[in-house]
Simulated scan of single mutants.
Amino acid sequence: MKLQTEIPSTQHRELDLYPTEQLIDALIDDQFDAVRAVRLASPQIANAVTQALPRIRDGGRLIYVGAGTSGRLGVLDGVELTPTFSWPNERAIGLLAGGHTAMFTAVEGAEDDAQQGADDLRALNIQIQDVIILLAASGATPYVLGALQAGREAGALTIGIANNADAPITLEADIGITLETGNEIISGSTRLKAGTAQKITLNSFSSALMVQLHKVYGNLMVDVKPTNAKLVRRTINLTMFATGCDEAMAKDTLSQCQYHVKTAIVAILNQSSVLAAQARLLANDDDVRRAIQQKE
């Protein structure tokens, strides 16, 4: 089977002769195919969120598996969940063919080892509640297919994401998401629009999941983990925006609850103590909106 992501494009055959401005325009314009591909896959992405949600609520983990660019994008998505949504590090795990070294340096041949993919996944003691996101532009990377087989054997939810139609990863996973980005402007360079489409898909999937886990109030990032000065400032701004209070009240309330924005919002809007706000959140599945609306 010929992979569309590997077939040279019939457009821009003299790309190497383009002046710089034309070259940049061509590279940027080609990325719009990525957005269109993800938009067409929206129903499948929504289904993945729906199927993943009960497992994650039951304590499952998000486990990303990939090689090369795809694997690095998976690692990135998982890592960013902690500062953005206070998601526990141990519940967002990235498996990259070639191990940690491959995050920074290409490890030749690592993606061709299906057994290693299966072994790496099994080493995590996979449970039925886990959600495994399998990424490969080709859709046929042996390392990822090995992990897919091991994930299915364990009864975990498997989500396959590929950039070619009828790919083994999407056909064999519980949920297949095909992002048909077509030929790359630089033939075979799937770090371009194939990678962009995967990044958009991962952003959409994990962000939607976090919203439905009550880590967003309105459109505010209320479960942010303030690990640096910029994020501490963000917690203050978010609290002021959500409640209409002044900076002094926001800082004072946040200082009483270790800068947990959700608690500060509930305490200020309900004119209650931090302890009472924490109790309300606990009683309402950490949902800010329900905690505010709860009757005495």
Rank of each mutant, 00 (worst) to 15 (best):
K2C: 09
T5V: 12
S9T: 14
H12F: 10
H12Q: 09
R13N: 14
R13A: 14
D16H: 13
P19E: 15
E21K: 15
I28E: 05
A34L: 09
R36W: 02
A41G: 09
S42A: 14
Q44V: 10
I45E: 02
N47Q: 15
V49Y: 02
Q51M: 15
Q51V: 15
R61N: 09
L62A: 11
G66C: 09
A67W: 05
A67F: 08
A67Q: 11
V75Y: 08
D77G: 09
L81P: 04
T84V: 03
F85I: 09
F85Y: 09
P88G: 08
A102W: 02
F104N: 08
T105D: 10
A106E: 10
A106D: 06
G109M: 02
A110H: 05
E111I: 11
D112Y: 02
A114S: 14
Q116F: 01
G117H: 06
A118W: 01
L124P: 00
A140W: 00
T141C: 13
Y143V: 10
G146V: 08
Q149L: 11
A150L: 03
G151I: 03
T158R: 06
G160H: 01
N164R: 06
A165V: 14
P168I: 13
D174P: 13
G176R: 10
I177F: 01
E180N: 12
S189A: 11
S189T: 02
G195K: 06
Q198P: 05
I200G: 06
T201L: 07
F205M: 08
S207F: 11
M210D: 01
V211M: 05
Q212E: 12
K215S: 09
Y217R: 03
D223M: 03
V224H: 00
K225G: 02
N228G: 04
A229G: 07
A229S: 12
L231N: 09
R234M: 05
R234F: 01
I236R: 12
T243Q: 06
Q256N: 13
Q258Y: 01
I268D: 07
Q271I: 07
Q271K: 15
A279M: 08
L281I: 02
V288Q: 01
R290Y: 00
A291W: 00
A291L: 03
Q293M: 12
K295Q: 15
